[in-house]
Amino acid sequence: MTTPPAPPLRLVVRRRGREGQPLEFSLGVPSDLACVGDAVELVALQCRAGPLSMRRLAFNLRTALAEALTNAITYGSRRDPAKVVQVRVEVTVQAVVIRVQDVGDGFDPAAVPDPTVPANVAKEDGRGLFVLRHLVDQVTFNPKGNVICLTLRAG
């Protein structure tokens, strides 16, 4: 079975990051899980000049962003391709900050079960938020729970 091609993505640079200014860009991602891989690569490519090591850029940023986008598309947009998940990224010398916003009703992150307790280890899903929390330096949500903000500090 071949994965269908993902729709094209368009990245908007909001600030170019010259002369010590932060680089800021945004990306609208259609709520199609086939778009996740391309969206992650586009963001990672733009972050290459930032403060993260190649290893953290290759693994931590990519995996964490894939988790955040998958959650937003699956639970926020209910996989409706007409709904767009907004990604906004700021790259400074101190950190990369990624904000992912969906149009859903939000959720309570404290209510998500621990996937590592014996009863849950063999389940097929439920690990996304847990994995994400371990890969970045800070995770915050807005009160509604439809915006997640990931901070990866320099290094």
Binding site: A58, A122, D125, R127, G128
Partner: peptide, 14 residues
């Protein structure tokens, strides 16, 4: 392999 997300982990369990 560069990275595996939780969906990838889930398919391995399945």
């Amino acid at each position: 392999t560069g990275y595996i997300d939780s969906s990838g982990l889930g398919v391995l369990v399945s």
